[in-house]
Structure formats: C-alpha cells, structure tokens
Amino acid sequence: MGDVKIEASALSRSYRRADGAEVKALSAVDLRIEAGQFVCLVGPSGCGKTTLLQIIAGLVPPTGGSMVVNGQRVTGPGPSRGMVFQKDSVFPWMRVAANVEYGLSCRGVPKAERQAAAAHYLERVGLSHVAGAWPRELSGGMLKRVAVATVFANGADVLLLDEPFGALDYVTKRQLHDVLLTLWAEGEAGRRRTVMFVTHDVDEAMILADRIVVMRAGQIVDDLPVAADRPRTTDALLLPEMVRIKHILLTHLGLEAAR
C-alpha cells in the first residue's frame, strides 16, 4: 500500500439548473487513491465522473466535504495536477512544441530546460517530426498525443484524463493506450504518477486500470481491483477473472441483468 495521494471525504457538488431544480452531481463521495495507481472511473453519462475530476483539478469547488491531494486541501488549479480534456485543448495559436512547453513556461522554467523536456516527450509520443507545426495541421489522434505529452512534460504527479480518447477511432485509441501506459510505467524519478482516467468504455478501463471505480447518480457504487499482469494482451482480457469483472461492469451500466 502506497501513500494516499487523493482523498475525497463526504464530497458533494450540487448546482441549480435553469428551471430552478437542484441537481446533485456528487453526493457524499468518499474515495482514497494511493500514489502511483492507475484508476479508471466508469459510469453512465451524467453520473458525476467529470465533476469529480474537475474538483480534483480545482476547476470547480465542491459544495460540501473536502478534496485533499498530496495532503493539501484543493482550493484551485495547480501544476501538481495535470488534465487532459475530452475536447481538444491544444492551443491553436501556439506551435506544437510551444504547447508542450506551456506548463513549464507558466512556472518560469528556463527556456533550454523547457525545450529539452518538450523534445523528450514529443519523441516519446512519436511526434518529433511535427514539433514546428501548427495544431491545425495535425489529426485528432495527434492532437491527443500533444495533450498527453504536455501534461507529462509539465511534471504533474497526478494526471486527470476526462474521456480523452472517446472521439478517436479504434486503432488510434489502442495506440494511445500504449503511449499512455508506457509513459505511466516509466514514471518520473522512479515514481509512477497517479492517474484518474474517466471513461464509459468498459474495455478501455480493463486494459488500463489497476482499479476501476464505478459511479452512478453521483455516488460510488463499486470499487474493483484489476490484478491482471501488464501488458494486457488480448488473451489476458479473456482470463476468467477479467471476464468476471467485465460482467460486473456491464451489469452496473445496465447492459446485462444481474446474475
């Protein structure tokens, strides 16, 4: 058991809809995530996954309870937590390399160091050849690679990914899983980063996660460890234990009857 990296206690978030009704996006969520874990957050659309991620990122304040990351209460965004968004977040007015350097330049890291980090991570995601290109010249999958390189280059030890590959084709998605897992497994200075990966794709969660947290209607309804060895081959996904987990997940999503 590693150190606790992320800890939500009685976390809730509600907002008022335009028609005046109060909507509870999260109600009394308790969650502890250890350092270095790869956690997938699975649940149907509108279950509060994204809200939970935004609270960890500090983009949205909770309306009740507390969110603690690295032993400190989250009061706003900060460079210890990097986020990859569902939609394209790469700045179209900066060339690819400048995008990857962005987080570092916000923190005043010297230019030579920034450039070295950007070059390193662009190489790791296989985009060295487009370092000087404009984002508009890149495909959707390449833009996601840039976003992944950017959060890794910034050195955040908590990575929050909000359905990052949802809009990509199957092949591109699988390639990006490999890129993400490789970078995660490498870690930085011998320490793996903690990853929270939101998805509604059961197979994606089974390929990536150490642990799958299932949410429904603003609450955590299940918490499943995934012990299969990595890399998870097609065969590994067919192990009885994995098939059992898949049945549980599909049942939670209402796609299979409980058995």
Binding site: P79, R81, M83, S89, F91, W93, M94, C106, L160
Partner: peptide, 25 residues
C-alpha cells in the same frame, strides 16, 4: 472555456492567462 481551463490546470496566473490565451484567442 476549455482553453481557459487548460491554462489554469497548468498553473497559469491571471496575467499569464491573458497574455498567452485570451489575447491570442
């Protein structure tokens, strides 16, 4: 909003946000 959120998660200060995101956008 996504560009603003993105810059904020990288720790951009208000002034940096205006210089690097709002003005070019």
């Amino acid at each position: 909003q996504i560009f603003i959120d993105n810059a904020r998660t990288f720790g951009a200060s208000r002034a940096t946000l205006y210089r690097t995101v709002i003005l070019p956008a």
